[in-house]
Structures are given as C-alpha cells and as structure tokens.
Design a protein around this nucleic acid. Structure first.
Lengths: 210, 210
DNA sequence: TTAATTTTGTTGACCGTCCAACATTTTATG
DNA sequence: CATAAAATGTTGGACGGTCAACAAAATTAA
C-alpha cells in the first residue's frame, strides 16, 4: 500500500483561484483519507491535514463533513463516466475493443488508484446505512451499464453474442465490482493486469466462438 | 431490507447448555447487528440487545468486542466452507454441476441472508485497516478457490475448458464477490436468482462450445 | 498610487455527545 | 450461603460542529 500524498502545490494568490484550489484539495484529500482510514476514521482533522489546512476550514467550503464526502465521491464518478463515454463514442474502434477499453479504464490512471478503490469500497459499504451515498453509487453503475449496452447491441447485430445484451453488460460491471473489491482489500494479491485479463476473459466469454 | 430478528428460543436450563446457547446467540447477534448497522455502529449495547441480553454480558463470553466479531465472521466462513467441500465431494454429480451448486450455495440458505451479505461487506471493508479480519477473509476466498480447482481440472481433462483452471476458479469468486457486494447494498436491485444466472453464465463461458 | 475600509479566508480551542472498557451491584443457581 | 451469571453504574477518550479572533485579499477613497 503505497502512501499517496497529495501533490503539494503552492496555493495561488487570487481569491477566486484560492477558492477553487482549496475546494479541490479538500475533495481529493477526503477521497484519499477515506481510502486510507475508512469513513468513520476519516476525521475532519485528518482530512484537513491531508489537504494541508486546519480543522476549521472545512466549514468554509462545505456545510458538513458529509457534504464534503458526497461531493468527493460524486466528483470521482463524474470523471470516470466522462472517460467511459469518450471511449464509447470513439468510432475509430471496433465495438468489442471499445468495451474492452471501457472495462480497462477501471484499472488504470486517472481513475484507478489504490486509495480510490479503497474509498469506493468504504462508500459502498456506508451506502447501506447512509442514503446520501446510495444514489451516486447506484447511478454510477447504471450509467456504466447504459454506456456499454449500445456496444454490446452492435456486437449482437453481428450475431456474435451468446447471451443477452443487458446480462452481458451488467455481468461485466458485477465482475469489475468484485475485482475492485479484491484490489481495495488486497486480500487475493490481485494485480491490475490480472484484473484486466479477467475482464477480457469475461468479454470473450460473451462471444460466440468462431 | 426485511428485518431479520433472531429466532427466539427459550434458553435451556442446564448451565453448560446456557453457556453454549448464550455464546451462539451472541455470535449470531454480532453478525446480524454488524449487517444492520456496520461495525463501528454495532455497539456492544446493540449486539446484546439483538441477542436478548444486557450490555455487560459480553464480557463473560468474549474478552472484547473485537474478539466476538472475529469469532462471528470465522463461524460464518467455517460453515460456508464445510458446505462447499460437501458438494465438491459428491461424486454422484457431474463436475460442472458441482461447480454450479458450489456457486449457488453463496446465494441460498443457510449461507445467504441479506444481513449476512451486509456483514460480509462490512468486515471486508474493515479488513483494510484491521488485520484481525484480514486473515479469515483471505483464507475463505483461498479455500473456496482451492475447492473448485479440482473440479475445473476434471473438466479440463475432458477438453471442455477454454481458459486456465486457476483463472476460471478465481474469476468465479471475483464475480461472486461482486454479486454479494451488489446484494449487500441493494444498489442494482439484483435478485439472488439473477445472481445465480450470472454465475451459470460465467461457468458456461469457461467452457468450449460444442 | 497609497491609505482606509470591507470582505473573504484561516485558525485552534471549546462543548455536547457517544462509546468501549472497567467497576460495582443485583439476581440466579446448586 | 457461596459462587457464578447478569445487569447497571462510572470513566476517560475521541469525535464533529461552532465560534471568536486573526490574516490576507479586494474594494473604495483620496
């Protein structure tokens, strides 16, 4: 578990920039700290320390610790989804290659980092009891599935699918969740390269053999 | 999320039986309470209430809250593994059918219950920061994988596998982890019957087509 | 431009709350 | 009545949100 500290940049001088800098620092620090310590243990003091700020500052940018955390997870999911859509719309690539790359994007920078996977796991776990986390997480999977369904549909038109389009898409993200789960805990000593292989194998398994 | 209360049985009379009854009650109550509330919020008071006992009782049976929780998760995994081994050794069944049933056992009583999946998720999440949970969880996956490897090997001998034995086995439990993850949170409105279908599809995908 | 004033950013100490562990008292059993 | 079991009381520590005071930047006035 490498210690990923925040890249230290000198805060800008102008107030408008300061605001954005601080806000982003706190968002990223919240994600990293939750990944390192879990939600309950990601105390306001630790998050602010990770962001290089003092305890009280958080109140100037977010109405509560919870609002900060919700914003942090939403920011992560937004970035991941934007990336997926870009790949899905890349008409220069074979549909199957686009599906592969969308899957792979979950295991590469800028989306994947150990602390991020850990934070995802912590938020997913917390979502059972705190409804504010539930919706962004649900929507994220939903968006991901909806993004690959058209690609699987293209494959199906080529008669290359052996199972339903929706099942193929959903199963892929169930598998990815399982792989993130394993990566977050490190319990199976899984490497991201292996995770990518598992995805390829799954996608391959959806296809009819020639 | 149905409220699964503990089945209320009258405590037995003899002391030896009382001890065992109380112990089992506390173990089960710990699991249910962690599933309902998450680890931090599964306070001693709540666990004891779920077990129908008072706060102080826990000290008579376990040296600390943590020891109780570790015992609880160990007890669950032990039960699940025993079941898997029994299926794996059932020579009256086709190897592929044994693999299917082992996978299915993760989504049926007596192993599966919503609170149990939730507790599994909570412990898995906590295992990142508390090493006492790490080992039982790691061992559980390892044991599961080791139990199905011989079965996949049998299939491979029949020339029916399209990917490596180890990959097939590990991928199956990665998928099951993802499915439990989804079931625990309810985020995708997944049903256990669908989860079983996904497992069948995966297992099918490991096979060469005829 | 410079100085005075207002607005925004930042800090660390404080307070009420909650919990696990420990200590004590009450109840049940043989 | 003695001993174990169970219930209840106490304590010390950690948390998030609040706030008064201070610092820096922006705005206005001269």
């Amino acid at each position: 578990m490498p210690a990923a500290t925040l890249p230290i940049r000198k805060p800008p001088r102008r107030q408008a920039e300061i605001r954005e800098f601080r806000r982003q620092s706190l968002l990223r620090a919240a994600l990293i700290t939750v990944g390192k310590y879990d939600i309950e243990a990601a105390t306001v003091a630790r998050i602010c320390a990770e962001a290089g700020a003092s305890r009280g500052l958080i109140a100037h940018y977010f109405s509560s610790k919870e609002e900060l955390l919700v914003s942090a997870i939403g920011s992560l999911f937004g970035e991941a989804q934007t990336l997926k859509v870009a790949i899905a719309n890349d008409a220069t690539l074979d549909p199957i290659e686009r599906i592969r790359r969308i899957a792979h994007s979950s295991f590469k920078a800028p989306i994947y980092a150990w602390e991020v996977a850990a934070a995802w796991q912590a938020f997913t776990n917390a979502s059972r009891h705190n409804s504010v986390y539930r919706e962004p997480i649900r929507a994220s999977t939903q968006n991901s599935v909806n993004t690959v369904i058209p690609l699987f549909t293209l494959l199906a038109e080529q008669q290359r699918l052996r199972i339903g389009v929706n099942e193929a898409a959903m199963g892929l993200f169930m598998l990815i969740d399982g792989l993130w789960n394993s990566l977050a805990t490190g319990k199976d000593e899984l490497q991201t390269s292996q995770a990518i292989s598992f995805c390829n194998t799954y996608i391959e398994g959806c296809l009819r053999q020639d």
